[in-house]
Computed example of a mutant assay.
Amino acid sequence: MLKITDLKVNYGGIEAVKGITFEVPEKSIVTLIGANGAGKSTTLRAISGLVKPGQGNIEFLGEEITGKTPEAIVKRGITLVPEGRKIFPDLTVCENLKIGAYLRKDKLDDDINWVYDLFPRLRERSWQMGGTLSGGEQQMLAVGRALMSRPKVMMMDEPSLGLAPIVVRGIFDIIREINKQGITILLIEQNANMALQTADIGYVMETGRITLTGSGKDLLVNDAVKAAYLGA
C-alpha cells in the first residue's frame, strides 16, 4: 500500500535518513522503533510532505507521491498524528475535530459520532476547550482529528509520550480497533514493547538506517532488540 525506496532526507543540515527502504502492507500495523535521533520522525515527515526528500521514492497505492504537498497527500488518504499531539488549545473538542476534515465538503455528523463512539470521553467534553483536557484526552483528540480526514493510512508519532501506563494501554487498544476497521497504521513509538506487541511488522532504525526487520513477535524475542530497547 505504501512503499518507500532508498529514501534519504537532510534535516537541519544533517542527513537524518540514509537510504531506507520498507513497505507498509494494506490493513497492517507497521512500527518503526529506535532511539531518539534515529530518523523515525523525519521519515514520517517526508511521507506526509512536511520535508522534501533528497533522494528516493515514496509510492502510495502505486502512485508516486514524493515531494507532493501535505494537502495533496492528505487528499490521497494519508494522515499524521504528530508527536506532542499539537491540538488547538483555544478551540473546543468539536472544533478541533472539524479542523481535521478541512479538505472535505460533505457532512461531518456521522464521522464526528464515529469518533465519539471510539472515544466516549470526547463526547462528554465536546464543548470543552482542547487546552483544558488531560494529556490522554488530548491524545484521543489528536487521533480523532486525524480520523476526520477519512484516511486509508494513519501515521502516528509517539502516541504514548508522557502518558500514564493505564492511558497508554487504552491508546493501544484504540490503535487496534482503528486497524480492525480497515485503516492501515504506521506507528513510531518509544515504548518498543507495546509497539512490537501490537505490530504485524517491525523495523528497527539506527542512525538513519534500517538495521533489522521482522514480525512484531519475532523482534520481541530478538536478543539485540531485547538488549537495546526492551530492557532485557
Rank of each mutant, 00 (worst) to 15 (best):
L2Y: 09
D6R: 07
K8C: 04
Y11M: 14
I14P: 08
A16L: 02
K27C: 08
S28Y: 10
S28N: 05
I29S: 11
I29E: 13
I33M: 12
N36I: 12
G37V: 10
G39S: 13
T42C: 10
T43M: 03
L44E: 13
R45P: 03
A46Y: 09
G49Q: 03
K52Q: 13
K52F: 02
G54I: 06
G54S: 09
I58D: 00
E59H: 05
L61P: 01
E63L: 04
E63N: 09
E64W: 06
T66P: 00
G67C: 06
K68A: 07
P70Q: 10
E71G: 10
A72E: 15
V74E: 07
K75P: 04
V81R: 02
G84M: 13
G84I: 12
R85L: 08
I87P: 00
F88Y: 11
F88Q: 07
D90G: 01
E95G: 07
E95M: 13
N96W: 01
N96F: 03
Y102A: 09
R104M: 12
R104E: 15
D106N: 15
K107G: 15
K107S: 15
I112V: 13
N113D: 05
V115W: 14
L118I: 15
E124F: 01
R125F: 08
M129A: 01
G131P: 08
L133F: 02
S134A: 07
E137W: 05
E137P: 01
L141T: 00
A142W: 12
G144C: 13
R145W: 10
R145H: 14
M148D: 15
S149T: 12
P151S: 12
K152H: 13
V153D: 12
M154Y: 11
M155H: 10
M155W: 13
D157V: 01
E158K: 03
P159A: 04
L161D: 07
L161K: 03
G162E: 06
L163E: 00
A164W: 08
A164H: 08
P165S: 05
I166N: 08
V167F: 05
V168L: 07
V168W: 06
R169H: 09
R169N: 11
D173A: 04
I174S: 07
R176A: 00
N179Y: 15
G182L: 12
G182N: 09
I185V: 02
L186A: 03
Q190K: 12
L196E: 11
L196Q: 11
T198C: 14
A199H: 10
A199G: 11
D200F: 07
D200L: 05
I201M: 00
Y203F: 11
M205V: 06
E206S: 15
L212I: 08
G214D: 12
G214H: 11
K217Q: 14
K217W: 05
V221C: 00
N222A: 07
A224W: 14
A227R: 15
A228F: 07
